[in-house]
């Protein structure tokens, strides 16, 4: 700050930008308001995260007291060499690739279509959104039932179409993830659908009228008006979806518990197994930290994208 604050009172010197802050009294009130949240945040998020980071350098076992022996980066080097770890990361990515494009594109298409319905919009909105209010356990049961080998609904449909021995979706390593992705798309599409519908209803009608007067076809209106006007919603949907996909656990655990073999074992399923079933807390901590880094990278991308968009707007 400016030179003549140096000789001033210590309180001012330590807070050179005091003029830019609320006064001390206001600050205390603010902290008081934050305190309840900060307490839980410290106890249940920051604290455990720090503990996790520390534990990742020890051969901690859940059935032994304390952290165990310090082993430096050994947990990380074992992980990097572990086939199961990389395949779990790949399965997570696979799930992301299977679900994100349909969830963004289909929800957009359905929202545009529903928005054009002259009547009965409430019905369509409800129809697309209803699966989303179901708990993951319920949707898993429904889809396990549909995908039951040989006697399930899907196998029956395939038999009608002339297949003698339909491949069991959840029992075949190459198909199991597709099955989980389909269940997830059906389950969560309603949320993106609602976001897009809200975005669509924010676009002023005059723009469409103006475009129509200029002779734009409905497709041109969508291409040059709707899509650009919804770009912020799209960024939001896209990044929320990617982060949700990285955290995929429930459906996998309930529908295949990572099987057949380990072919649908995603990062979080792997971490849970290593930490709680195999008791290897240190290794699970190291894997969690690596997943944390990946998620942070995506969060940063989101931030950067948002800023770029704000500048562009």
């Amino acid at each position: 700050m400016s030179a003549h604050t140096v000789g001033a009172q210590p309180a001012v010197a330590t807070t050179p930008r005091a003029d830019a802050r609320p006064p001390l009294r206001g600050q205390r009130t603010a902290w008081l308001f934050i305190a309840p949240f900060a307490f839980f945040y410290l106890c249940f998020l920051l604290g455990p995260s720090v503990y996790m980071f520390v534990a990742s350098f020890f051969d901690a076992s859940i059935v032994k007291n304390g952290l165990g022996n310090f082993i430096g980066l050994e947990n990380y080097s074992t992980l990097v060499q572990s086939r199961d770890f990389w395949s779990s990361m790949w399965h997570t990515l696979q799930f992301t690739l299977y679900t994100v494009p349909p969830l963004v594109i289909l929800s957009f298409v359905f929202a545009v279509l529903a928005n054009r319905m002259p009547r009965g919009q409430t019905f369509w909105r409800l129809a697309f959104f209803t699966p989303f209010i179901l708990p993951s356990a319920a949707i898993s049961l429904i889809w396990v039932f549909i995908f039951t080998a040989d006697t399930g609904l899907w196998a029956t449909a395939q038999k009608w179409l002339g297949s003698d021995a339909p491949t069991p979706v959840l029992g075949t390593p190459s198909l199991a993830m597709v099955g989980i992705a389909i269940a997830t798309i059906w389950w969560t599409i309603g949320f993106n659908f609602i976001l897009y519908l809200a975005g669509l209803q924010d676009i002023p009608r005059e723009l469409y009228e103006a475009a129509a007067i200029d002779g734009a076809t409905p497709w041109q209106q969508i291409r040059h008006l709707t899509i650009p006007m919804l770009s912020r919603t799209t960024t939001l949907v896209l990044l929320l979806q990617i982060i949700a996909s990285l955290k995929i656990f429930d459906q996998v655990y309930l529908m295949t518990s990572g099987g057949p073999g380990t072919s649908t074992e995603t990062a979080l399923v792997f971490i849970t197994k290593v930490g709680f079933t195999d008791y290897r807390l240190g290794a699970a901590a190291a894997a969690s930290f690596m997943l944390f880094v990946v998620i942070v990278v995506f969060a940063v991308i989101r931030q950067v994208a948002e800023r770029a968009q704000q500048k562009g707007a």
Binding site: T172, P173, G258, P260, G261, K273, D278
Partner: peptide
């Protein structure tokens, strides 16, 4: 073994692969 026993990782990884042979995959 620490990773073996009924319904364990051992059974899952060996069993899944054996199943693939049965299925001709």
């Amino acid at each position: 073994a620490w990773y073996s026993g009924s319904g364990s990782n051992f059974e899952t990884v060996t069993g899944a692969t054996i199943g693939l042979v049965q299925q001709g995959l």
